[in-house]
Design a protein around this nucleic acid. Structure first.
Lengths: 210, 210, 210, 210
DNA sequence: GATGAATGAGGTTTCATTCAT
DNA sequence: CATGAATGAAACCTCATTCAT
């Protein structure tokens, strides 16, 4: 977990052959699963290698270190998430449904895309602290999401109550994220349906005032 | 060489002398600081002991392990937080100010009480995953906070738009927590004032519809 | 931070390569020597590793802990001992020599096989106390030896004075073991030859009455 | 566990007052019990002090170190044992019973005196290895016992078969000790009665030839 | 290339002993 | 004197990483 990045001649293999790509992918998959299940620190490289069906030696020919896989897992996770949300947005915009339905779908989609990564997500907040690169990736992640939220809101700009769209997008994004987190993470307590209903209600009233 | 654990006769010291109490306290303080600064996993017991100005041996006569101090830090942190919020609530109720002001003060208070623990808070979500005891402490923490939110809302029950107070309290609590987190955590980006203003606006419209 | 132990995925290494087998063996050898020289408690894993010419890490990839090597040393020691005795028995039976000579050879053989492990042997009685597994290994060890004594006696069953062969085999085994121990262990005092002569005399008179 | 004894000005208290004597005694008692139960190495000074109802500080004003109590325990143990045997001898000699009965009583007496120290006894063999002083105490112990055995045998010298009394006394002592150990130590297997019967039989035939 | 054995720094934990109160 | 808190050396053990085969 170096913070000061030096430029070493890159020793890791750039997969060009099919088999190689598959191997690298299986390592990332294995790592993603283990990180989700047990967290970054309680997962060791030997376990990742074993779960991916390769030797520890091989692990290190695909990744410089443990943090390196983590970064890959992070990227893949982000892409999957963004893609899912993009798809949903595209679908929704086309249909031009009423606000309440749009927001409701949006949230449902977020719950879907969140679910596979429940605990991985938690991990991020921790590592973020201690690693500049991860911090940046996360930051950019956040910004992309926030900007998307912003753009999504701009589609209905003339109908919005607030004039500070920037701040509003943060508030909306955070609120949605945290409630979705709670829905996905804790099975117990208040039901998902009720929480979602209230969240939608809150956003509609906040944004459109009606 | 024992396999079947017999009774452990002399475990962690229960402070009898004043000096002892002070030592234990200084260890908790040091741990709290280090956990906040560097995170749980990047802090080791030797560092905690050193920061508290005691030997590693002392550390282990007050706590069985790192997790054990963590639990104490967690409790103290929670108590401080709850106390701060309680004080704010008490003050606000007395003044009977208008909704917007009340919520605004409330959020300000949360920001204040959150600030000292910025990163410690992040840590929690991670550790929660893998430790049943911590999970329980956190869960109970969350429930206390949620119930307080609920009670706070009930003070104005007849004015509220929603009928599902339970779900509403979760949504409100999560939204406030996450936005406050963002305000406290990231110095950059949209200013605290603007975020707070939008958050207040969202809550007022959601809860009181006006 | 786990409380409920999950499956331990990657415990001690099972030697697959030749090198690995050699390493494991050299650790056992080193441990055997050190345990004999200094006793179990005064030998630590670092010393064992160093004596075996490997790192502490290697030690722990072959054995879970010190007790674990001890068990291996114990097994190897026992096997060597049994083999030595078996060889002697085989040789003696063939020759059909007179009782006094047979017993004398037998004891001589025991002295030979005992010698390399003088103090290691002492250690056993202690550790036995506190470790169920070691207790069992020792118990089974003892039973094998006792049964062999019994079988050896049965070869001359019709000539024996006693009718309680079971009890007799215990008494014979214990007497022989302890006197052999004394012969091997303490260089000083009464000479080995004289002790052996008396031991033989005692057994002959006890068993065959003449 | 120093091997080279230096002459330090003795800091430990020489108990002159009653209370002091009682305290020292209770520490030795506690230590004896714990050593027997868990062995020397698994018993720590804190436990001994606690079991004796004193502070660790007090422990060190009565004994220079852990080994020091051990030595005391050892001495007391020996004395008790010798006394018990002496008493038995005195009683037996008076009665002038027949050989078989005498030996039988003797062994019974040894079993009685052994029982309270079963495992403590095992411990000795280990520590012996690494501590010169303990070695000497044990050696002298052994010699006293052996000499007593010798003297006991001399009472019937004219009836004995052997001419090498010295060697015979060793063989007798070792045989008796080990079989008694087995009787006391392992409750399972062949019954005490049968073992004792065979032991007596062996000794009688060996010593008196009949 | 792939393998898995080896490394060793760094973390955790214990406990005999000292010493301030 | 008694107390028990404090000490720290020394043991234990882990795991990211390297390297011989």
């Amino acid at each position: 977990m170096n913070e000061t990045e030096e430029q070493l001649p890159d020793k890791t293999r750039k997969p060009r052959q099919d088999r190689s790509i598959k191997t690298k992918d299986s390592i990332v998959q294995a790592a993603a699963r283990l990180f989700s299940e047990k967290g970054y620190h309680r997962t060791n490289t030997k376990q990742i290698a074993a779960a991916a069906g390769v030797s520890t030696g091989s692990f290190y020919s695909y990744f410089t270190d443990k943090r390196d896989v983590f970064l890959d897992v992070l990227k893949i996770h982000s892409q999957a998430m963004q893609a899912h949300v993009d798809a949903t947005v595209a679908q929704l915009s086309a249909k031009q449904s009423d606000k309440r339905v749009v927001i409701s779908h949006m949230i449902e989609s977020l719950i879907q895309s969140h679910t596979p990564y429940i605990s991985f997500h938690r991990e991020l907040s921790l590592l973020q602290l201690s690693d500049e690169v991860i911090k940046e990736v996360m930051e950019s992640q956040y910004n992309i999401s926030r900007r998307k939220t912003l753009e999504f809101m701009k589609l209905s700009e003339h109908e919005l109550r607030t004039s500070d769209l920037e701040a509003a997008s943060v508030v909306v994004f955070e609120s949605v994220s945290s409630v979705v987190d709670r829905i996905v993470f804790s099975g117990e307590g208040v039901s998902a349906g009720r929480l979602k209903a209230e969240l939608v209600d809150m956003l509609v009233h906040y944004l459109f005032g009606e």
